[in-house]
């Protein structure tokens, strides 16, 4: 190939400009669709959860949530070190899908057969 410098034709500039515009527009459109779909799904899931909650007995008042990442009150640790207790609280929070700042642990104690137990 002989290397020869040439100014790209107007068509080339047009192609490049059109190209980046098409990519931006396509991905922006997908973003809009995602927003719409997630909104619709959240509305539907919200309604389903509300309906489910209506059929269950009302839970005890939750109280004012603590700031994110904080836990309500002191926890009595019996035969459990703080690190293990933190892991247990994180697991309970994840499994129950209740944020830690809305959970109140009273105690976590090691039970006789070697397993750890506690009450939330």
């Amino acid at each position: 190939m002989d290397i020869k410098f040439q100014i790209p034709a107007a068509d080339d500039f047009l192609t490049a400009a059109l190209g980046i515009t098409v990519v931006m527009a396509t991905l922006a459109l997908i973003a809009v669709f995602i927003l719409l779909i997630s909104k619709i799904i959240r509305i539907i899931e919200g309604k389903a959860k509300k309906a489910e909650a209506d059929t269950k007995p009302a839970p005890a008042p939750a109280g004012v949530p603590m700031p994110s990442g904080m836990n309500n009150g002191e926890v009595d640790l019996i035969g459990v070190d703080e690190k293990t207790a933190a892991v247990i609280m994180a697991i309970v929070s994840q499994q129950s899908e209740i944020p830690l700042n809305r959970l109140s642990f009273k105690s976590i104690k090691l039970i006789d057969d070697g397993k750890k137990g506690g009450e939330a």
Partner: peptide
């Protein structure tokens, strides 16, 4: 979803290189 715009903007090099290649 705004991430999609970043993914689109990061295709800029495709078209810059296209123009440069035409220059060569």
């Amino acid at each position: 979803p705004i991430s999609l715009l970043l993914g689109a903007a990061a295709q800029l090099g495709v078209y810059v290189a296209f123009l440069l290649a035409r220059t060569f």
